[in-house]
Design a protein around this nucleic acid. Structure first.
Length: 809
DNA sequence: GCAAGGTC
């Protein structure tokens, strides 16, 4: 029997489609990656009985990146990213081993039916799937079609069966348009981001963003926020006057009347009206009209609307909202939360959905009332053909979800109760006056307004809108204020104003739609993929060069808001080249700057830096600094120069002295390393020479910290190693009065792990210990208890002279 | 370290 492999875009869809096509008779199992399931059943295909295997991917299988060496920011000129740098497709999520999973399932299959989402991304994923599986599928009869594409517009029985009965072929052009988009986004985004970041980070010390990113979606998103900021800034309040009249009838409370002219901007004119009105002592009702306020029935809920409502009514950010929605979905409270559809299918069981809520503690009464009076269907929306609108699936109590507050739906506010009055009624005028007021500026953009703007201009998709908003927050371009209003920071404002000065297209919302127009030509087969790609890249390459040449225009704005790097920070340690003090810049990314040499040296992030006893690196004469993770945490010295310029072949960027393989320096791994880490495979426990009297050694790779020899006044790592476990011996020196050693000895040299004298006085412990290291007497496991291939492990050479020879190459 | 697009 022949086998048909069918692939959907996500596991949930594979399941629903399989259920429909197998009429509920399929068997299901988990795939090897744990994320995707395979649903199998027998059925009819191309006039034969076949085995169907329905499975899915998880979105894109592959993602685009530059080949490795072009990811080095120091060695690659960003301009090369426009054409010279080759790109490659990498597995989008290596943890899912999607390619392997697809191949295992496709091996021996005769046909494939692609059930990916019916949009351009889905079409692109079709070919990612084909690239993975075609090599392992059965070679079919020549000229017989083996690749099919199912086109469906909703997940209903009719639609899915229609799609199955009218299979077509995947659309190469649509897929290519996505390939082009990916390459454009990558090359343009990375080139601008790297250039801006390096340029401004090298000049200003207090930018407070470690990454100054640029992108065709995030930058216009920021642009919207700054546009509103500019409106607020340029707003000039105007004074206006309002006529206010208070009238009353009998003993009723006085009523304030609105002026049908609303306001005047001229005081004289206003005063004239007051004078005119003051002539009358009575106010007569001339006509009575009643207005009914109507709010449109809502449409069925899609993702973007959910994000808007969550932001404005619940005060939740889009990213957070999606996380919560995801959880509610997997727990069965709501239907699939990512959908563009705002229309319930004709035969959608609204009543059934409502009945699920009949015992809900909060809205049971409303539900019952609705069920007895009948439901008005939601206002007609749009069927995007992806998933049904977001729908509650079962009732939940407050306790189940743990939420604390429910914000009541924004209803129409009750109108002020007006006293009943009829035409001809008269009121006595109590007071008429002219009130001075001022026009007020608009507010900062709310998140909900921003989402609307993005949707309107086609910036991002329902799934990526939260990511873009999150990006501009994380990059410190905007902050979220009360009421989820987005206020641009100085950095955000300067960037946008800078783009406006140099090339406004870089920040206008049209940047995305203009490119998409070109991409659509590829999708429609009206333009050649390579030509469009090269043409668009060429345009942006020119924009990039112009931007680089004009960067001083943006710099002029930066200067106003930020301080030059040389004027930032405080003197800390001496430069090894000029021997003048370098300044420590604490703002992220923290670094050292030598204004005389005009060089910046990066430092470890997250932690504190201080001078280390004015000791110097023997290699480059830079003064060492001491990095500390915090009080009682890990600390080690590092050389600011070596940290960015690894001195030895086996060292990488970002290493401190505790990883330095210098053969003789007293601060190096060679001098202070004791033995292999008790937790990780690659780390060495290194003595922290600054930790006394609560002595510690810390792993130079992971977070393990081991406390030992409390109150010893001196600890030294000896040249010799332990015969049993190969760890370096440690010489400990105690004070006469406080020594815990037998026979009041003050000194002892031995192995921390094996020496019997130390066994009784040393208690090894560390924060994240999994195995007990307490030396409760008894022999150590096989003498080399920590042994994980310790012997023969060259990480800490026994023979230091041999190591020396190895390092001087 | 970078984009934006899928989805878990």
């Amino acid at each position: 029997m022949r086998t048909v492999l069918m692939v959907a875009e996500k596991p949930s869809l594979a399941q629903s489609i399989a259920k429909i096509l197998s009429k509920g008779s399929c068997t299901s199992r988990k795939g090897l990656n744990g994320a995707c399931s395979v649903h199998e059943y027998n059925g009819n295909f191309q006039s034969q009985t076949v085995r169907f295997k329905m499975t899915s991917v998880c979105g894109h299988v592959m993602s685009l990146d530059f080949i490795g060496k072009y990811n080095n920011w120091d060695k690659v000129d960003p301009a090369e990213l426009f054409s010279k740098a080759p790109t490659e497709k990498k597995e989008a999520n290596p943890k899912l081993s999607m390619v392997k999973f697809l191949q295992v399932e496709a091996r021996g299959c005769d046909y494939v039916v692609l059930w990916l989402d019916c949009d351009k991304e889905g079409e692109n994923i079709c070919f990612e799937v084909l690239d993975a599986i075609q090599p392992v599928m059965n070679k079919g009869i020549v000229r017989e079609q083996s690749v099919f594409r199912a086109k469906f517009s909703s997940i209903t029985d009719t639609d899915i069966w229609n799609a199955m009965n009218r299979l077509g072929e995947p659309n190469r052009n649509e897929a290519l348009s996505v390939d082009a988009r990916q390459e454009l986004d990558l090359r343009i985004g990375c080139a601008f981001t790297r250039f801006q970041t390096k340029y401004f980070q090298g000049k200003y010390g207090n930018l407070d963003s470690s990454l100054i990113s640029f992108g065709p979606c995030q930058t216009p998103t920021l642009g919207f926020c700054v546009e509103r900021h500019d409106k607020i800034q340029s707003f000039k309040p105007e004074t206006y006057w309002v006529l206010q009249a208070k009238v009353f009838k009998g003993k009723d409370t006085p009523l304030t009347l609105d002026w049908n002219r609303v306001r005047v901007f001229d005081r004289e004119v206003g005063q004239m009206f007051v004078n005119l009105a003051k002539i009358s002592k009575e106010a007569k009702v001339e006509s009575v009209s009643k207005k009914e306020k109507v709010k449109q029935r809502p449409q069925a809920l899609n993702t973007v609307e959910m994000l808007r409502v969550a932001s404005s009514a619940l005060g939740m950010g889009p990213q957070h909202t999606m996380q919560i929605a995801e959880r509610l979905y997997t727990q069965g409270y709501i239907s699939y939360p990512r959908t563009e559809t705002t229309l319930y299918h004709e035969n959608f069981d609204l009543k059934g959905t409502l009945k699920q809520q009949i015992n809900n503690t909060i809205w049971a009464e409303e539900v019952k009332a609705l069920l007895s009076t009948g439901i008005n269907r939601p206002r007609k929306g749009n069927d995007a053909g992806d998933h049904p609108p977001i729908t509650p699936m079962r009732s939940a109590s407050e306790g189940e979800l743990g939420y604390t507050t429910v914000i009541p739906w924004q209803g129409i506010p009750l109108e002020e109760a007006l006293p009943a009055c009829e035409c001809g009624d008269t009121f006595t005028v109590e007071e008429i006056k002219l009130v001075e007021q001022q026009t007020s500026p608009p507010h900062y953009l709310t998140e909900a307004e921003l989402i609307t703007l993005m949707e309107k201009h086609g910036i991002g998709t329902d799934a990526s809108i939260p990511v873009h908003i999150n990006n501009i927050c994380q990059r410190n371009y905007v902050t979220v204020e009360n009421g989820r209003r987005l206020k641009p920071t100085n950095l955000g404002i300067v960037l946008v104003h800078g783009y406006y000065k140099i090339d406004a297209e870089l920040v206008l919302p049209t940047i995305r739609s203009a490119v998409e127009k070109q991409l659509n030509l590829i999708a429609q087969g009206k333009a050649n993929y390579q030509q469009v790609l090269q043409h668009t890249l060429e345009i942006f390459k020119r924009k990039f060069h112009y931007f680089v040449d004009s960067i001083t225009s943006m710099d002029e704005l930066m200067e106003v808001s930020f301080s030059p790097i040389a004027a930032t920070g405080k003197p800390l340690s001496r430069c090894g080249k000029c021997h003048r003090f370098m300044k420590y810049i604490q703002a992220k990314p923290s670094r050292l700057h030598c204004s005389h040499c005009d060089e910046t040296y990066s430092l470890p992030q997250n932690g504190a830096i201080k001078l280390y006893k004015e000791l110097r690196c023997p290699l480059d004469d830079f003064e060492l600094v001491l990095w500390t993770s915090g009080a009682r945490g890990k600390s080690y010295p590092l050389c600011p120069y070596c940290f960015s310029h690894p001195p030895f072949r086996d060292m990488k960027k970002g290493m401190g002295c505790n990883e330095c393989t210098h053969p003789t320096c007293q601060h190096s791994l060679n001098a202070l390393g004791i033995g292999q880490c008790v937790e990780c495979d690659s780390g060495i426990l290194v003595l922290d020479p600054t930790s006394g009297p609560k002595w510690r050694m810390a792993c130079n790779k992971c977070n393990v910290v081991v406390h030992f020899f409390e109150h010893a006044h001196k600890i030294q790592v000896a040249q010799e190693s332990c015969d049993a476990c190969d760890a370096s011996l440690v010489a400990v020196d105690f004070n006469k009065t406080r020594t815990p050693l037998p026979d009041s000895e003050t000194q002892h040299t031995g192995c921390v792990f094996c020496d019997p004298v130390f066994q009784d006085v040393v208690e090894l412990k560390h924060a994240t210990m999994r195995h007990s290291m307490h030396r409760g007497g008894g022999a150590r496991r096989g003498g080399r208890g920590r042994g994980r291939g310790r012997r023969g492990n060259p990480k800490k050479p026994k023979d230091k002279m041999a190591a020396l020879a190895a390092y001087f190459v």
